[in-house]
Design a protein around this nucleic acid. Sequence first.
DNA 1: CTGAAAGCGCTAACAT
DNA 2: ATGTTAGCGCTTTCAG
Lengths: 347, 347
Amino acid sequence: MTEPSGAVPRPTLEAVAAHAGVSRATVSRVVNGGAGVRTSLAEKVLRAVDELGYVPNQAARSLVTRRHDAIAVVIAEPETRVFADPFFAQQLRGISKELTAHDSQLVLLLVEGKDDYARVGRYLAGGHVDGALVFSVHLDDELPAIIRKAALPTVFGGRPEVNEQRVPYVDCDNRGGAREAVRHLRALGRGFIAHISGPLDQTSAVDRLDGYRDVLPDADPALIVQGDFTPAGGERAMRELLDRCPDVDGVFAANDLSAAGALRVLHERGLRVPDEVAVVGFDDMESVATQTDPPLSTVRQDIEEMGRLMARLLLRGLERGAAGNEIPGSAPSSIVTPTSLVLRDSA
Amino acid sequence: MTEPSGAVPRPTLEAVAAHAGVSRATVSRVVNGGAGVRTSLAEKVLRAVDELGYVPNQAARSLVTRRHDAIAVVIAEPETRVFADPFFAQQLRGISKELTAHDSQLVLLLVEGKDDYARVGRYLAGGHVDGALVFSVHLDDELPAIIRKAALPTVFGGRPEVNEQRVPYVDCDNRGGAREAVRHLRALGRGFIAHISGPLDQTSAVDRLDGYRDVLPDADPALIVQGDFTPAGGERAMRELLDRCPDVDGVFAANDLSAAGALRVLHERGLRVPDEVAVVGFDDMESVATQTDPPLSTVRQDIEEMGRLMARLLLRGLERGAAGNEIPGSAPSSIVTPTSLVLRDSA
DNA sequence: CTGAAAGCGCTAACAT
DNA sequence: ATGTTAGCGCTTTCAG
């Protein structure tokens, strides 16, 4: 461990003031932008800051300003998914970039189990952060309640299933993207287009299914089978599909992972892709879509951008709150980002 | 945004004290575990806390205790990798679990570019966190210097290339794992075992190469070709290998991603795996290793556990620092975790 | 433009 | 066992 403890006591404002021969107030002003301080003095202060290696104590600062320049990212994920999936890493990157630009820090709260909600609630309410970005994939009323209690400005990642509080969210156009995928399959002349859905307790899965139905309202229900966003689920679903409707000549899978599973089964059964069965996925997870055989055509969503937008939405709200104070009905609204169809070789 | 601002002022200790008819000190005691407070009084306080919805203000607390119950995770990654790779997500999960158990928060610091170092340094020095866990994959002297300046207890993830400060780290037994992989290939009777290495500015890549050399000190240098831990790099390397040494009958790739690339090329050239060429990877990234054709034999490292260990090492040091104060030479030492060979079908 | 002084909400001696 | 009292390091009126 570097510098175990009992380390050099950090210099305080006081020390800098003494060193520069000015008052604490002046040092404070300089440190915070230096508005209204004579240049010569400011320079002297800056020099002192530098010489002493002064860094403001954030706890002291927050205590009076009530700002933290930090926002929490809450990820409540059912165990498994987070780490089969570059999704969050990418989203985090977008968030991080935006926050950095606003000099804000990112505090990550991973919710692993039921007990964690209390801890997270305490943290959110504890005045550590200025706002929260929350990802709660499942039907999950704990988090919204916690957020309400914490009374913290919040933006959701993905459309929440229940949202009476009208918390703003950022999501991609799942439904529209699905429509585009299915239309593409239809344009390819496919007559039996199936859908491997995601778990229907997630809005993204529901929305993608809805998109499929928009285009194919009269599709045989046997063509719709529920997967779970995993390759294994995709395999299972594809097998079932093939058994039920051997005529299937198009598959829209609700995500790339299930599409990969489907592809594997198709391969195994000796069905040529895309000649006999065309397949389209969703997400455009590069590590998956480019590695399948054949490479997967899929609906792309700009995940990093979504992260950036979430952060921007939150920060904007914070600024507005700080400045304009309570303009009723002016709550920031949600953002739905566009998707695009990426054609590779599977359809 | 929930509760835009101008929200209800949170109750303070003072308020709770008044409400319960005791002094602030008593409330403070109760809130902090309640040692040495009569049960009846404590209950009264607790009730007041509950009724007012009191939550301690952490800034105020930190200001006096100088503890934050938060540690920073610094990830300095060359742009691309973080999000092709479940690696960090998994490690984060392990870290998060351990921190949670110690009621500590995780503050994530993503370093995206050169400019970010200053920001991170400021943050680390700003007294926000009690310690830091840092992942710096590349030869990178900025971070160590920053950490020294911040004088913050730190543990590295992965063996750092330079480490005069003897900062403790947690890494898996890259070299031993590599040896095991290569020995397995040799036990399979392969006579021309190649190695697709990672970028040699990373210690993990170097160590794995060293492991290969341990077992095959006399291997033809032509059998060693540098990849970059990506599938594309693996493809390139495999092609080169095949051109240079058509006799290759075994490949140890420095990670699963490059192994996947190699597999693709082998496939493409019509070489049967494992019959004609056996392939072993490294990492056991499930989303990759189980999805290749054939499924990949690989060296497993328990990434989540490594995360947990990093956190534990740091926290332990923190406790010791707080309690025992400066036992010289007692700096926590590094941990090297074991690997294991996972046999699937590729070797 | 600069300084003096009053807290922010909490903990930790020190009294009692 | 409980209360009293000083600050922790900073920002921010308010005077000058």
